[in-house]
Design a protein around this nucleic acid. Structure first.
Length: 453
RNA sequence: GGCGGCGUGGCCGAGUGGCUUAGGCAGGGGCCUGCAAAGCCCCGUACGUGGGUUCGAUUCCCACCGCCGCCUCCA
């Protein structure tokens, strides 16, 4: 039984599934107006790991993650670049999916776009007005947060303290600083859709309510996103659902921030925060490993040091995969206690650091067994390690990339002959030659092995 | 001002009232190897500061210091 921290209740509790064997989850996706940063990468990986684990456990998972394609920031960027909001959104959405592919995040079951749900959103806003939970102002329609008795649940604060904390430059017209826009009337040149109250566009918080309920139905299992979405975004989604008397998410899950130099990620800190850039400079799998090595609710430090560290750890795992390839095949039954330990760790609020502990400890055990020549004991444990890595989306490379050039293979054969003849001076010279060409040389039981760095 | 989180050995990062006190990376020593590489073994004895509770606290409580986040768009 999977137990997860639930932001709404403030405790770790079992994930209740609406239907046994099925999990319906909604994860807030990006607003597509720029390149994805490490924070986007983290939430995508965290929920990808959860999803894969749920599937590994035998669940049928419906994973919905939206694309926000209408938003002030998209409009701003389009204006700045002399482009259109549609073109901006289309471009950055493509960049988004490319980045997700690079870090091996599986595509959502559904990826609803806000602009495809305008009619439904207009209906919801109308409903909220009819119910007295929303009101009209000069610049749009606003949600009345006082209409929801337990507003502040996800922020873990009551309405009064939230109001007290509001900053000064809020819109005076709103009845309360916590009230938020459901519908924004269009200014000249802005994208607009018709509504009973005037042409405009939906507020950010409305799309996810409408799309999650449409695709997953009332009372879906899990709603997730980054910690900063808990308030106000998720709070406001929930408020609309409550006011509209619709059963909403049963469980709320939020992941911690990525920090660079001890601070929350931000674009002003420079290049390093770009997910694509990290993938250019390090093996993209290194980022997944970093995410797995820290607990999803803890802040996570990313730096050149930690990324390089993870890359080297990955080399160890790849070396392991190469080594065990000959003792594990499809018929190998994975070690049951190791898999049970994996399940226990994951069920305990996704203890992926513990899982990595288990993986590396098992790797050492398998290597030791193989050093002793105990292949029959090594096989099942090795198979368990491979299965666990696969279950959390960490793909190990058992074979090196690319074919070794023929001339290098020839040099390797010459080196084997030289070694057989105990002409070590020649053997070492040949090894240097191969290494100078940028390859790694490793002796194996079958002779000189060559692989890419 | 309100709410919340964090401070662990060179770095990253788990965890726990005392027991063999994760794991990775880096470093040192050793084994293996013709030499390397890979692998294995051993080594660091850490928990912000000051009090308190306790037979005993890094782990519980209080205060303080420092850092961070949310309360505004934000993963």
């Amino acid at each position: 039984m999977l137990r997860l921290f639930d932001t709404a209740s403030g405790e770790v509790r079992p994930l209740r599934q609406r239907r046994a064997g099925q999990v319906s989850m909604y994860v807030c996706g990006p607003t597509v107006y720029g390149p994805p940063h490490l924070g986007h990468g983290r939430f995508s990986l965290v929920f990808d790991v959860l999803r894969r684990y749920l599937v590994w456990c035998g669940n049928d998972v419906v994973y919905v993650s939206n694309i926000t394609d209408v938003d002030d920031k998209i409009i701003d960027r389009a204006a700045r670049e002399g482009s259109t909001p549609e073109a901006v959104a289309r471009h950055w959405e493509q960049v988004w999916w490319e980045a997700m592919d690079r870090i091996s995040v599986q595509r959502p079951t559904d990826d609803p776009h806000a602009t495809a749900y305008i009619d439904d959103m207009v209906r919801l806003v109308g409903d909220l007005i009819d119910r007295g939970a929303a009101y009209l102002l000069d610049d749009g329609v606003y949600f009345d947060t006082s209409s929801v008795g337990d507003y502040g649940l996800l922020a873990r604060q009551d309405l009064d303290s939230l109001r007290a904390g509001a900053r000064v430059d809020v819109d005076d017209a709103k009845r309360s600083p916590t009230d938020f826009a459901l519908w924004k009337f269009a200014k000249p040149g802005e994208p607009a859709w018709d509504s009973p109250w005037g042409p405009g566009r939906p507020g950010w918080h409305t799309e996810c309510v409408v799309m999650s309920l449409d695709l997953l139905g009332p009372g879906f299992d899990l709603h997730g996103g980054g910690q900063d979405l808990a308030f106000p975004h998720h709070e406001n989604e929930r408020a609309q659902a409550v006011a509209a008397e619709k059963a909403f998410a049963g469980h709320w899950m939020h992941n911690g921030f990525v920090e660079v130099a001890g601070e929350k990620m931000s674009k002003s800190l420079g290049n390093f925060t770009d997910l694509g850039d990290l993938c250019d400079r390090y093996d993209p799998r290194a980022y997944r490993l970093l995410v797995l090595r820290s607990h999803y609710r803890s802040p996570m430090e990313v730096s050149d040091t930690s990324a390089g560290d993870a890359s080297r750890a990955l080399e160890r795992l790849d070396a392991f995969a190469r080594r065990v390839a000959e003792v594990v095949d499809d018929a190998t039954v994975a070690d049951a206690p190791a898999l049970a330990a994996f399940r226990d760790l994951m069920d305990d609020d996704l203890d992926t650091p513990g899982v990595m502990d288990l993986v590396f400890t098992s790797v050492r055990q398998v290597n030791a067994l193989l050093d002793e020549g105990d292949r029959s004991a090594a096989g099942p444990l090795a198979a368990a390690v491979l299965e666990i890595c696969s279950a959390v989306g960490l793909e190990l490379h058992a074979v090196s990339d690319g074919d070794v050039p023929d001339e290098l293979v020839a040099l390797a054969r010459q080196r084997d002959e030289a070694r057989a003849a105990r002409d070590f001076a020649l053997a070492d010279a040949l090894r240097d030659q191969i290494q100078d060409a940028g390859w790694i040389v490793e002796d194996t039981p079958s002779g000189t092995g060559i692989r890419r760095p």
